[in-house]
Design a protein around this nucleic acid. Structure first.
Lengths: 225, 225
DNA sequence: CGAACAATTCGGTGCGGGCCGAAACAAGAC
DNA sequence: GTCTTGTTTCGGCCCGCACCGAATTGTTCG
């Protein structure tokens, strides 16, 4: 061994397809029960239980009891970032079945990544805000100037006032381009749900665009879906 | 399986202690041969060879032939970032032997992380530049203003001219705080080697501070080692 | 040329761990 | 109380793979 952190130990936790699948399911920040995660990962509840307790033991997940249910969620945002980071260097997976292709397409289309919007829609939205001069691109993220803040306020998003606001970005693993992260990313996603332009799927990170959303996104952001 | 990227496959590559050790050895950006990596990871050359070809096959490493040697290095900076990201959520490893403790201490002290300075020294340097008003802290990294650019130029570092320069940072896994990354990070580290304030160790990411370096760092940056 | 060294391929061994089903345990619902 | 459902624990099976040593290929040096 070399340093003093055990990378291999964490990686081993992520190296199992079942655990990876569970973590991906949890990666929109919501909480799920043992049975739900077992079903989505296609293993027996007993198997899922063992995996989940290992993940909790390692500090990757947090668990909350509610009656006879246990709700599992990511312990901290850093976990999500590590997962995204792994996804960004992972080989594209070969798609065999039609339904898998369908699921993959939906995820590419629009998904939630720790409370902010990712996928094609997330990237397009970021592009549009840049093009409209609301966000400015820098080496390490976006910047919002005064006029951008005014626009956001008019759109229904209030942020703490500041002369310049620095907005972190994420590299999107499906598009391999940037989308808006941080508190502004979360606020934007929230507002789009609130306006009913977007709807969540029940048990997936995928996001559906409503017909109202389609119209508005095309009209106000030039995003044609 | 869920999405369309196979996180588990990449994670499995990092999940083996031997491969993880090799990647950590390579994580300062230098290139090493099969035998060197075998020795540092304490396995037979045949074993090392198999691991290395798997890593190359997955696109994590690049290999270059030079005579009867094969030089392996990280294929791209993104690999390094994934490793650091894993290290940041990894449990602190228990240290058993004295020599392991020594190695750990040296790594914490100062090390190279993909061409820029990390560890206690890297973090202290970042702090000092912020305190001196050369770097300014934002939500997503540092900013250099005009006067900062002038200071850097006087220190022997020329960067492309710009009104504001945005400098990415990394979260340091040993200190759990930020240090300077990106091209400025690399330029700073280079300059410190050039000034002979720092010296590289032969086969490790660790960095040694020369006696001249100790004096100068204390005097010009208030860093007492 | 042959000797020395770097690197890879191959065969065989052994251990770790993921999986399930059955059973135990826990917490409502009736 | 009993019945149902969610969750965990345990026993046992089996596959994958990290490891080494020996043999093989390739390269440099004398």
């Amino acid at each position: 061994m070399f340093g003093d952190t055990d990378i291999a130990a964490v990686a081993a936790l992520l190296a199992d397809p079942t655990r990876a699948s569970m973590l991906l399911t949890l990666s929109d920040g919501r909480a799920f029960t043992t049975t739900e995660l077992a079903k989505s990962a296609k293993v027996a509840p007993s198997t899922a239980s063992e995996h989940l307790s290992r993940l909790v033991g390692a500090g990757l997940l947090a668990v909350e009891r509610q009656g006879r249910h246990r709700y599992y969620r990511l312990a901290e945002p850093a976990i999500m970032e590590t997962i995204e980071s792994l996804a960004s260097i992972a080989p594209r997976q070969k798609i065999h079945t039609l339904s898998a292709a369908e699921r993959a397409k939906v995820l590419h289309y629009a998904r939630i990544c720790y409370h902010h919007l990712a996928g094609m829609l997330g990237v397009s939205l970021a592009d549009s805000l840049v093009e409209q001069g609301i966000l400015h691109v820098t080496d390490a993220g976006y910047v919002v100037e005064k006029d951008g803040l005014a626009w956001l306020q008019a759109f229904g998003i209030t942020l703490r006032q500041a002369e310049r606001l620095y907005v972190p970005w994420h590299i999107d693993w499906s598009e391999r381009r940037h989308h808006i992260a941080g508190s502004l990313g979360a606020a934007l996603a929230n507002r789009l749900f609130q306006l009913r332009w977007l709807e969540r799927h029940a048990a997936s990170r995928a996001v559906r665009v409503t017909s109202e959303g389609k119209t508005q996104l095309a009209h106000r952001f030039g995003i044609h879906l």
